[in-house]
Design a protein around this nucleic acid. Structure first.
Lengths: 215, 215
DNA sequence: TTGACATTCAAACGTTCGTTTGATACAGAC
DNA sequence: GTCTGTATCAAACGAACGTTTGAATGTCAA
């Protein structure tokens, strides 16, 4: 039997380096040599531990992306439990905080959403993990939470579109930091992220802050 | 002097094929051979007409993406002129229709937003074209249109966040068709796009359709 | 100490990449 | 006809790619 320490150390370093590079540059723009250099191991290690580059990419989603998605979900549920109720305001506040401030470091969060976006624009086998095992269950859960509070006339599609819209904002403000920073004129610091959460909650609950007599 | 017809015909075919392939697969996943095969011309044509692959990619943005962004903008302005006023409802309706139904074919629109997303996640020199020459001016124009109607307490950053939020929805519902289709359970047909525009307008103006006594 | 096994490594594999080359075809100017 | 410049082409270039190989290294059971 191999020393499980050394074995998994190289595997873990590979997964870590691969995840960061895939997130930053995308699958095709990253070479196996680049990954193994970053992980400080031999070129052949990828094929020895994961078979090939594609399986390494899939392993990144299985071993690193999925657990993180679950951590975010757990954080949302903790936030909501702390609210004491399941009103739309509480739900959205808990969701926005879990996704934008949440349990992840800033680097992790950026990495997480970049991988997600790349999988949406270039779907591979990992797309199923992202949609079927993560997004879909989450959205169904949110739908059940919000449904009792929505207008009776709202059908299921409209309810889902509302949740997708909230999600689109969170996703966008996470992965499109560059253009957002360019447009608002400053970086993503902590106070701004606080204001961002507040904005998403406000906008989701009331839409544009229009004066009453101007609607 | 060469026959300007034949000259520009090959160039145009290259730009057309390159745009579609770059949008579908991303810069690194598309080879020059793939592009020249699609354009039915010789491999060396890319280097003869554009110098190299990277310049071809930039030319796609300059020669095809920018004009299309301008067509969308013109459509928005026509829509708004047809409304007779510049109320937030009219502005948002005109914007959502220009972006989601608009002057483009479905294929063009998908291509347009895919290129945009790719440039946001993998910024190159074309990123400046997308942000500085297109997004920023548009958002400033929208800000000036909406400002008079917003609450006096709303500062510039909050006003921009509102516009960015509307934009995030439009962008998301355009480029993330796959997961959206998976979640709502059907394809992007014309009636759905109508409902989508309506939803974006409603959501932007009022947020979640919550019952009054439940807010 | 020996043998079996897991892991690492340098080197090479064949393929595909972006780019270059030199020949060829063909237009209009003189 | 000859010359000039543009456009296309097949063929080849060196570099980088993902993957494979076989030897070397280290660890533990027997």
């Amino acid at each position: 039997m191999p020393p499980d320490n050394k074995n998994s150390m190289t595997q873990d370093r590979l997964l870590k380096s691969a995840e960061m590079l895939f997130a930053q540059k995308g699958y095709d723009a990253v070479s196996v040599r680049e990954i193994t250099n970053a992980a400080k191991c031999n070129l052949a290690a990828v094929n020895y531990h994961f078979g090939n580059k594609k399986t390494l990419y899939l392993s990144v989603f299985r071993e690193r992306w999925m657990p993180r998605a679950q951590r975010i979900r757990a954080c949302f549920e903790e936030n909501l439990a702390g609210c004491g109720d399941t009103s739309p305001a509480s739900v959205i506040q808990s969701l926005a905080e879990a996704l934008i401030k949440g349990p992840l470091t800033d680097k992790e969060r950026l990495c997480h959403f970049q991988l997600m976006i790349r999988e949406i624009t270039n779907p591979t086998e990992a797309f199923e993990i992202v949609t079927e095992e993560t997004m879909k269950p989450s959205f169904e859960g949110l739908g059940q939470l919000l449904q009792p509070y929505l207008h009776e006339s709202i059908d299921e599609e409209r309810a889902l579109l509302n949740i997708l819209s909230i999600f689109s904002m969170v996703l966008y403000f996470n992965f499109a930091r560059l253009p957002v920073s360019k447009i608002i004129g400053h970086a993503y610091d902590q106070p701004f992220k606080d204001r961002l959460v507040q904005h998403i909650v406000d906008f989701s609950l009331s839409g544009l802050p229009v004066r009453e007599n101007a609607k």
